[in-house]
Nucleic acid binder design. Structure first.
Lengths: 359, 359
DNA sequence: AAAAAAAATGTGTGCGCACACATTTTAGGA
DNA sequence: TCCTAAAATGTGTGCGCACACATTTTTTTT
C-alpha cells in the first residue's frame, strides 16, 4: 500500500524479475525479436500487463541514437506562398526531433509531375529512409505513384485514392467548400450571383471544394446563384494567373449582376486585381483560399473578403511527428483532418501563420 | 572536411576535450553552478560556441529522472463546459511528459474566489512544485494574488496586470470582441440593432470583449447600433443563466427592432432559449463565445449564429509544455496569444474541440 | 613556512533501454 | 549414451547527461 505511493518507475528490470527471466528476454518479447520459448513469452506478457509496464521513451531514444531514424519527405518546391510553407513545417519538426537523433531528408521537386515525384521517391528509398511523407497534388489512383510496401508512406495536403497509404493528414476539402459557400452567402446578404474560378481544376482538392460549394447552395437556402464555373489551366503559374485575371474580367463584364467570385485555391489575387481594375471593389465579394503574403492589402480594401487557410506547415509538422511516434514508440497511425482557419480582415492577427502555427 | 560529413553528435565530452577541462567543469558552466575559474569559464564557453554544442534533451531528461520536475496548476473546477476543458489539456500534457518523469499536480478550486485560489497556491508551494500555472479569472492587479518570487508563475485564460508573471497564454479578448462585431454585422447584413449581454462583467476578458465590440463598430461602418448593454451578475451559474434569460426576454419585447444579441461569454444558451421562446429564431441573430456541448442544436436551428472559441485545453497544454521546456531545457519564456476559432454550423466539424485540439 | 580552509577540478555512477555477444539449455542425430 | 547444432537465455556495454563525491590546487590563517 505504502509502496504504491512511492511512484517508482517500472523498468524492464522489474518486469524481468517478476517474470523470472533476464532483461534480454523481456527485450526480445517487447520487440518481437523471437527466440523466446512459449512459456517465457507468456510469463513476460503477463508481467508486463500486471505491472502495466511501458518502456521509457527517452531511455529508448537515447539508446537508439546508435542507428538513428530517418524520415524522408518530398514536396513540390513551386515558388508560391502555398508550397513555401511546407519547409517551415519540416524545419520545426527537425528542430524538435533533432535531440532524438532523427534525420529528416527533404527532396523538393520542381514541378507537380509524376515523373519527377517518382524520381524523388526512388532517391529517398535508395537512401534507406525509415518512412516517407509525400505531398500529394494530383490524385494518383491511376497508380502513377506506387507507395513502397516496406516503408510507411503517408500523404499530406491532398487525399488520394491510392492503396497502401499509411495515413493522410489534410483538410476536408468538401467541407471547406461548403464553408466557402456560407461565407459567400454572408458577404452577399443572401443575394449572391456568383462566379466560380477553379484553377488547377484537375487537382483532387479543387474538385472537392467546388463540389462542396455547389452542394451547400443546393442543400440550403443560401440565396446564391452560380452564374458560371470556369476551370482554368495553364503551363506556368504566371500563365494561370493571367488566365484567371482575364476570365474574371470577361465574366464581370458579361454579368453585370455578378457580386461574388469564388476562387478555389490560393490564386485569388488575380481575381482581386480584376475586381479592382473593373472598379468593383465592395460590389463584388471575393472568397478564396489559403494565406499569401500580399493578401493584407486586398483584405484591407475589401477587394478580398475571406479565405480559408489549411495550415500547410502544421500538416507537415504533424505528419512528421506522427511518423516519428510510430517508428520510435510504435504508436498507431491514423488519418486526421487538419483544422482550417477563416482568414478575414478581422482574424488576420488572430490566426497563426506558417511557423508560428505549429502548436 | 570528411569528418564533417560524419554527423557525429557533439557531446559534453567533446566540449571538455576542446576546452581542456573535465566534463564536470563543462557541466558546471552549462548549469551555472559556479565554482569555475574565469579562465576555464571562458575556455568552455568558447568551446561550446565553436562546436555549437547543445545538450541532448533526452540524455538530460533521462538523467533528471532521479529528481523529477513537478509542475503545479490550479483552476476553477466550476462545472461548466468552459472550465471542464482545462483538465483535458492537463491530461494530454501529463501523458506526453510522463516519459520524461514530469509530475503534474492539479488543485481545482470550487469557486473564483481569491481566498480559495490563494489557498491552492499555498498548497502547491508547500508541495515544492518547480513551477505554477494559474488560471486567472478576475484581474488581481490589486495584489489579491501574489505570485511567488522563487517559482516561475504563469497565467492562462485571462490576462492580469499583476507583476511577476513569467508568461501568459490566452486569447486577445479585444480582438475577438472586434471579430464578434464583424460577425454580427455579417449576419445582420449591416443592418443590426444589437443588445449586448455581459455576464460576469467584472472579469477582465469580458470587459475587453465589450470594448473591442464597441470600438469596432465606431471605427468602421458596420451598420450596427447598440441599443443597450446589460451587465449581468449572479451568485451561481443557474442564477446568472436565469438573469440572462430574463434580461433577453425583457429587451426583446422592449425593442421590436432588435435583431442581434451579443453574449460576451459562454452563457449564450440562455439567450438562445429566450430567442426561441420569443419566437424570434432567424429574426434575431445571436453571437456568443466558446464551445458548449449543447450548442449544436442551437446552431442547427439558427437560434445561435456563431461563437468564437478560445481553445482552453490547448492553452493549458501549451502553458505546461512551455514551462517544461523552460525547466528542463532552459527555454526562454514568452507570452503568446492563442489562436481562436470561429464556430458556426459550417465549421462545427472542422474546428477541433477539447482533447482533439492539441496539435 | 606549515597547516587549515576554501575554491576549483576531476571521477564515477546511475538513469532505462537496445543490442551485440557470451553462455546455457534443449533437440536431433549417430 | 554422447556429441553437435540450434534454440533459448543471460550478460555487459554504450547512449549523453546530472550530480554526488573524491581529489587537486589555490588562498587564507596561524
Amino acid at each position: 500500500m505504502i509502496e504504491d505511493m512511492v511512484n517508482k518507475n517500472i523498468t524492464i528490470k522489474d518486469v524481468a524479475k517478476l517474470a523470472q527471466v533476464s532483461t534480454g528476454t523481456v527485450d526480445r518479447v517487447i520487440h518481437n525479436r523471437g527466440k523466446v520459448s512459449d512459456k517465457n513469452l507468456k510469463k513476460v506478457q503477463a508481467a508486463i500487463k500486471e505491472l502495466s509496464y511501458s518502456p521509457s521513451q527517452i531511455a529508448s531514444a537515447l539508446s537508439y541514437r546508435k542507428n538513428p531514424i530517418t524520415i524522408g519527405i518530398t514536396y513540390p518546391a513551386v515558388d508560391i506562398d502555398f508550397w513555401n510553407e511546407i519547409p517551415l513545417g519540416i524545419k520545426a519538426a527537425r528542430k524538435q526531433l533533432e535531440p532524438f537523433g532523427v534525420n529528416i531528408i527533404e527532396i523538393p521537386t520542381t514541378s507537380y509531375g509524376f515523373a519527377e515525384q517518382n524520381q524523388a521517391l526512388k532517391k529517398l528509398l535508395e537512401m534507406d529512409v525509415n518512412a516517407i511523407i509525400f505531398c500529394a497534388v494530383n490524385d494518383f489512383s491511376s497508380s502513377a505513384i506506387t507507395p513502397p510496401s516496406d516503408v510507411p508512406f503517408a500523404t499530406i495536403v491532398n487525399k488520394t485514392r491510392t492503396k497502401g497509404i499509411a495515413f493522410h493528414i489534410g483538410p476536408n476539402d468538401f467541407q471547406i467548400g461548403q464553408l466557402s459557400a456560407k461565407l459567400a452567402s454572408l458577404y452577399t446578404c443572401e443575394k449572391g450571383n456568383a462566379l466560380i474560378l477553379s484553377p488547377n481544376a484537375s487537382f483532387t482538392g479543387t474538385q472537392e471544394r467546388v463540389a462542396g460549394f455547389i452542394s451547400k447552395i443546393n442543400q440550403e437556402k443560401l440565396g446564391i446563384e452560380v452564374l458560371k464555373t470556369e476551370n482554368i489551366e495553364g503551363e506556368s503559374n504566371s500563365e494561370i494567373k493571367k488566365n484567371i485575371y482575364e476570365m474574371a474580367i470577361k465574366n464581370i463584364s458579361n454579368y453585370p449582376e455578378l457580386n461574388c467570385i469564388y476562387v478555389t485555391n490560393g490564386f485569388f489575387s488575380s481575381a482581386a486585381d480584376a475586381i479592382i481594375d473593373a472598379n468593383k471593389v465592395g460590389k463584388i465579394k471575393l472568397i478564396g483560399h489559403e494565406y499569401t503574403k500580399n493578401m493584407k492589402d486586398y483584405l484591407a480594401t475589401g477587394a478580398l473578403s475571406a479565405t480559408i487557410y489549411q495550415h500547410q506547415a502544421r500538416q507537415t509538422y504533424l505528419a512528421i511527428m506522427q511518423m516519428f511516434n510510430h517508428l520510435q514508440n510504435k504508436q498507431q497511425l491514423e488519418n486526421s483532418s487538419i483544422q482550417c482557419s477563416i482568414i478575414m480582415k478581422e482574424t488576420l492577427s488572430i490566426v497563426k501563420i506558417g511557423e508560428s502555427d505549429l502548436l
